[in-house]
Design a protein around this nucleic acid. Structure first.
Length: 657
DNA sequence: CTAGGGTTAG
């Protein structure tokens, strides 16, 4: 039962004429009402508003609504506005409930109109809210600053610049809103969310006075538009900087893939004596994930503890940590954080599943997914399935993957995105099921993108199917005319099929288009002596000791008994047997390499080349095995911890890994 | 009654 304070209301209700007075109060022609009754009505209104405020479910609101009608207060704008606000707070459809309650009120005031407008905006129904606004203006009611701000927010979330501009005009015409910070800040927000940064800036520049929100809205907008210089300039000019503003800068750097700047900014923030909260922390953790260095991972964990955040109690921080540890190669640590989480949500599960998939642990990924769907209430989303499908793809589990793909659609009602199709094509392609992959692409409900065709082209190259490679490349040349990788892959597919004239023809086309091969599509990295990260690009030999590494690789390759040089670069075998031989050769000479400090350099180069050239069925697991093997050896030979971990970045060549 | 910063993929 709704707890109305009976003690307070009972005496009012004893008056027999009270209900009829209340009814008259809201009537068109106001009769004379004794002042004492007027006071009582106001009192009852306050009581009901407070009751509504304490409702904890739509059912309780409905109950209170019944009571409101019984007391003849359903004409009170004050009460009905509160009722509508509560309904939208509990996500009750505005159209089905609030609208009909509203229509009963004969003289809605501006507050009630605003409540209905906001209700529609919460439901994402901008058109309906415009109609309500028009009817409000038709009645000659002047909008409140809340009304204007709400409508601007609605235009912002729908990216409807046209309507937003009209509201801007309306606010100017009505006058008096120019100094209202809520309205002007909403204006800035509306313009930047509609993609018109210049207009947002203009509003900001013309403001008579600005507050923290004006500044931060614009800074964040610049950061999201990849204009970090503008964001930085504005931030420096900011007279007082609070935690949110600092955090906007930190996450801005992260979103623009500038992890070093992000960490540097965070350090400045700390020396400025500004508090850190979980949002800041998530940004810092992501910066560390981008650096992929264990050293930073441990540092950020200490920062979190020092700031008083237990990752076990915050799903945001916990999920970011799981992701970071996975990317830094510390799967055990990631799993530790995952297990410690008190409340796991879809992000926690997805991050962990993706972590397993990333490390080639397909079975663990699938088991975790099953645990999630059978023993918890957490609902998987499209990213969760992307993780599961990636795991199947890397593990060569095609049939299993197809089942998951169907389960996603049928059991969970998630329609596959182009990325899901990308993973499916990758999965089939790795196993050489190219025709199946091609017919899947043709059956796609949306246009295939470069990723999808790229996966097919890479698979055709490996499996030597020149005609499917031709078809995929044809699409890619249109979609990514400047991407030389596609030409190279097609050439290799022709070469494998012995079609040398076609190889020559494509080479001529490449030259005619002025396309030149760029180094460094794939890379690997290792943490150096002081925790700094060294990056090694495929086909690039810029490390001071690269000459030595090259010598060793060539020598080992020769011993492994196959042609080691292609265009001056050592190529590790294109089939699995060759790789095995190569790795065995290196294993035999491991002590020697450790002695002269070449071990990790060698490993990096092995991994890069395995990633690029190995058989795609095994690419990911092979690289992973190699990395794990390296880690094991490194411990055995007593390499310092920071030199044990080798990370990897996406390798676009062939679309694999 | 209204406003600014955040979590997962390759």
């Amino acid at each position: 039962m709704v707890s109305l304070s009976k003690k307070l209301i009972a005496p009012i209700l004893k008056s027999s004429s009270f209900i009829s007075t209340v009814a008259k109060f809201h009537d068109d022609h106001l009769p004379f009402i004794p002042f004492s009754h007027l006071q009582k009505i106001k009192h009852l209104e306050c009581q009901l508003v407070s009751t509504l405020e304490h409702c904890r479910s739509p059912a309780q609101i409905k109950q209170t609504h019944a009571y409101i009608i019984r007391k003849c207060l359903h004409q009170s704008s004050y009460i009905i506005a509160k009722l509508i606000r509560m309904l939208s707070k509990f996500n009750v459809s505005t159209k089905s409930y609030a609208a009909s309650v509203f229509s009963e009120v004969r003289h809605p005031n501006a507050f009630l109109y605003t409540a209905l407008i906001r209700g529609y905006l919460v439901d994402g129904m901008l058109k309906e809210s415009i109609l309500v606004y028009n009817s409000m203006r038709g009645r000659g009611l002047i909008p409140l600053s809340f009304t204007i701000a709400a409508l601007l927010k609605g235009s912002a979330s729908e990216s409807d610049a046209n309507f937003g501009r009209q509201i801007h005009g309306e606010s100017v015409k009505l006058g008096g809103f120019g100094a209202d910070l809520f309205v002007v800040n909403a204006l800035i927000d509306m313009y930047v969310k509609c993609g018109d940064l210049d207009c947002g800036r203009k509003v900001f520049d013309e403001m008579p006075e600005r507050d923290l929100i004006s500044w931060t809205t614009l800074i964040d907008a610049y950061a999201k538009a990849a204009e970090m210089d503008c964001a930085d300039e504005l931030f420096s000019a900011m007279p007082v900087k609070d935690m949110v503003a600092w955090t906007a800068m930190v996450t801005g750097f992260v979103q623009n893939a500038k992890p070093r700047e992000a960490l540097e900014c965070f350090e400045r923030m700390q020396s400025a004596g500004v508090q850190t909260d979980e949002v800041t922390l998530v940004g810092v953790i992501n910066a560390c994930a981008q650096l992929g260095a264990v050293k930073h991972a441990y540092w950020v964990r200490d920062v979190a503890v020092r700031c008083g955040f237990d990752p076990a109690h915050d799903a945001h921080v916990g999920s970011a940590l799981i992701d970071m540890y996975s990317k830094c190669g510390c799967l055990e640590e990631a799993y530790g954080v995952f297990n410690s989480l008190q409340r796991k949500n879809v992000y926690s599960y997805s991050s962990m599943i993706i972590g397993f998939a990333m490390h080639g642990r397909a079975t663990s990924a699938i088991e975790l997914f099953r645990e999630m769907t059978t023993t918890t209430d957490v609902k998987p989303n499209s990213v969760t399935f992307l993780g599961v499908l990636t795991a199947c793809s890397h593990g060569g589990m095609v049939e299993q993957g197809k089942l998951f793909f169907d389960e996603m659609k049928e059991k969970h009602g998630i329609s596959p995105s182009v990325d899901h199709y990308n993973t499916m094509v990758d999965m089939l392609g790795r196993r050489g099921r190219l025709k199946e992959a091609l017919s899947l692409i043709k059956a796609m409900p949306m246009e295939a993108n470069g990723g999808v065709w790229g996966a097919l082209l890479g698979a055709s190259r490996v499996h030597g199917d020149a005609s499917i490679a031709e078809e995929a490349a044809g699409h890619l040349f249109k979609l990514e005319p400047g991407n030389i990788g596609n030409y190279i892959l097609l050439c290799e597919a022709y070469a494998k099929a012995g079609r040398w004239e076609d190889v020559a023809r494509v080479r001529r086309e490449m030259r005619a288009k002025g396309l030149r091969k760029k180094a460094g599509v794939a890379c690997s990295w290792v943490e150096g002596e002081r925790g700094e990260v060294q990056v090694f690009y495929a086909g690039e030999w810029t490390h001071p000791r690269s000459g030595e590494v090259k010598g060793v690789l060539e020598e080992v390759a020769e011993r492994a008994g196959y042609e080691a040089r292609v265009g001056g670069v050592v190529v590790i075998g294109r089939d699995i047997l060759m790789e095995e031989k190569f790795i065995i050769c290196i294993k035999f000479r491991i002590k020697e390499f450790v002695k002269n400090g070449l071990l990790w350099l060698l490993c990096i180069h092995c991994i890069i080349h395995v990633c690029i050239h190995a058989h795609p069925c095994h690419t990911s697991t092979k690289a992973m095995t190699l990395r794990r093997w390296f880690h094991g050896v490194a411990i055995l030979v007593g390499l310092p911890a920071r030199e044990r971990h080798v990370g990897r970045k996406m390798c676009k060549i062939g679309g694999f890994i």
